Computed example of a mutant assay.
Amino acid sequence: MTTAQTVLAAVLFLVFLPLSLAKIAAVGVMRRAAAHLGMSPGLYRVIGALELAGAVGLLLGLASAPVGVAAATGLTLLMAAAAVVHLRHGDSPVRALPAAVLALAAGAYAGAAVVAR
């Protein structure tokens, strides 16, 4: 595990942790985001739980590379799907950009972890 991988895992964890917990708790801004995208609060909670699992998996990946790769791959797919959902709902590309950037960052982590093995 390189220093860059460790830092990237930590940064991704710190980004996904509050976002996932806010979705699970269905705070106001997340309920509005779910409604904007045509999703029920329950579905948004499931997405939050998947994000939380991915974030925790990234930390566990510091001790077990396959777990980290699986978590990063899951987060990559989840965030790529989020970007697509935003664009399909008529949001501007700028609104989809955070999800796309997180997908790229998680994918970079997964790729680096696979190469380092």
Rank of each mutant, 00 (worst) to 15 (best):
T6A: 15
T6W: 15
V7Q: 10
V7F: 14
A9V: 03
A9R: 08
A10Q: 03
V11G: 08
V11D: 12
V11A: 15
V11P: 06
L12D: 06
L12S: 10
L12Y: 10
F13K: 07
F13D: 05
L14N: 06
V15C: 11
V15W: 14
F16H: 09
F16M: 13
L17C: 05
P18L: 06
L19K: 01
L19I: 13
A22E: 01
A22I: 04
A22L: 10
K23Y: 04
K23T: 02
K23D: 00
I24Q: 01
I24N: 00
I24C: 04
A25K: 05
A25P: 01
G28Y: 02
G28R: 13
R31C: 04
R31W: 05
R32C: 03
R32A: 15
A33D: 14
A34N: 05
A34K: 09
A34D: 05
A35L: 12
A35G: 14
H36G: 13
L37R: 12
G38V: 11
G38Q: 03
G38D: 05
M39K: 11
S40W: 07
P41E: 12
P41H: 11
G42K: 11
L43M: 14
L43S: 07
L43A: 12
Y44A: 09
Y44M: 15
Y44W: 15
R45C: 07
R45Y: 12
V46R: 00
I47H: 05
I47N: 02
I47F: 14
I47S: 02
G48E: 07
A49S: 14
L50P: 00
E51A: 09
E51I: 11
A53T: 12
A55E: 08
V56T: 07
V56H: 02
L58R: 06
L58I: 05
L58T: 06
L59D: 00
L59Q: 04
L59V: 10
L60R: 07
L60F: 13
L60M: 14
G61P: 03
G61L: 08
G61D: 06
L62R: 14
L62H: 10
A65D: 12
A65W: 11
A65N: 03
A65T: 15
A65Q: 07
P66D: 07
P66H: 09
V67R: 00
V67A: 06
G68H: 09
G68Y: 05
V69G: 00
A70R: 00
A72D: 01
T73F: 08
L75G: 02
L75C: 10
L75W: 07
T76R: 02
L77M: 09
L77N: 04
L77C: 10
L78A: 10
L78W: 08
L78T: 00
L78K: 04
M79I: 03
M79S: 01
A80N: 01
A80D: 07
A80W: 11
